[in-house]
Simulated assay, not measured.
Amino acid sequence: MRDIYAGAEEVILFLGDGVNHRISTAYLTQPLPSPVVFWNDSRDDSHLQLFRDSSKALWKQKSWNAFYLICLIRILSQEGDFSFAKAAIEAVNGQRRRELFELLRRLAVEPWWHRIWVVQEVAISPKVTVRYGNVTAPWDMFVQVAENTQSHDYSLTLEAEYAKVLSLFTRQVLDIENLRGEWEANKGTDLLSLLQRFSDRKATDERDKVYALLGLARRHQFLVPDYSTSIDNLYQSTAITLIGSYGNLAPLSGDLKRKNSRSLASWIPDWSAIFDKSDRERMVLYRTYHACSNWRITVFEPPEKYLNYVAREMGRLVTSP
Rank of each mutant, 00 (worst) to 15 (best):
A88K: 02
W112M: 07
E99L: 10
P126N: 04
L107R: 06
A85L: 00
E79L: 12
V118T: 15
W117Q: 05
S125T: 12
F82R: 13
F101V: 08
E110D: 12
S125Y: 06
L104A: 12
A123C: 11
W117M: 09
T129M: 08
E90G: 02
W113N: 13
R97H: 02
Q95P: 00
F82V: 07
I116H: 07
T129P: 04
P126Y: 04
W113F: 13
S125A: 15
G80W: 07
N93I: 01
G80K: 10
W113I: 11
V119A: 10
P111M: 10
I89H: 00
G94T: 04
A123W: 09
S125M: 09
S83V: 15
A91I: 02
V92P: 01
L100P: 02
S83F: 12
V128K: 00
F101N: 03
A87K: 13
A91W: 02
W113D: 09
V92R: 05
L103R: 15
R97L: 00
A108S: 15
E121K: 11
A87R: 12
R96I: 07
S83Q: 15
K127R: 14
P126M: 10
K86N: 00
D81I: 00
R97I: 00
E90H: 11
A88Q: 11
N93M: 01
A123L: 06
E99G: 07
L103N: 04
E110H: 11
K86P: 01
L107Q: 02
N93T: 00
I89N: 02
Q95N: 05
V92A: 05
P111D: 13
K127E: 13
I124Y: 08
R106L: 14
S125I: 08
E110T: 14
F84C: 03
W117H: 09
A108E: 05
R97Q: 10
F84Q: 04
V118P: 09
K127Q: 14
A91F: 06
S83D: 15
S125C: 12
N93K: 03
A88G: 01
I124R: 08
A85I: 01
A87I: 01
E121Q: 14
A87F: 08
I89F: 03
D81H: 06
A85T: 01
L104G: 07
V119M: 07
I116Y: 04
W113R: 11
I124E: 03
F82D: 00
R97N: 02
E110L: 13
H114M: 11
H114D: 14
W113Q: 12
I116W: 03
F82L: 06
I124K: 08
A88T: 01
N93L: 00
V118M: 12
L107G: 03
E102L: 13
A123G: 06
A87V: 03
T129W: 05
L107I: 09
R98W: 02
F82K: 11
F101M: 05
S83R: 15
E110W: 08
L103P: 02
V118H: 11
V119K: 07
V119Y: 02
R96F: 07
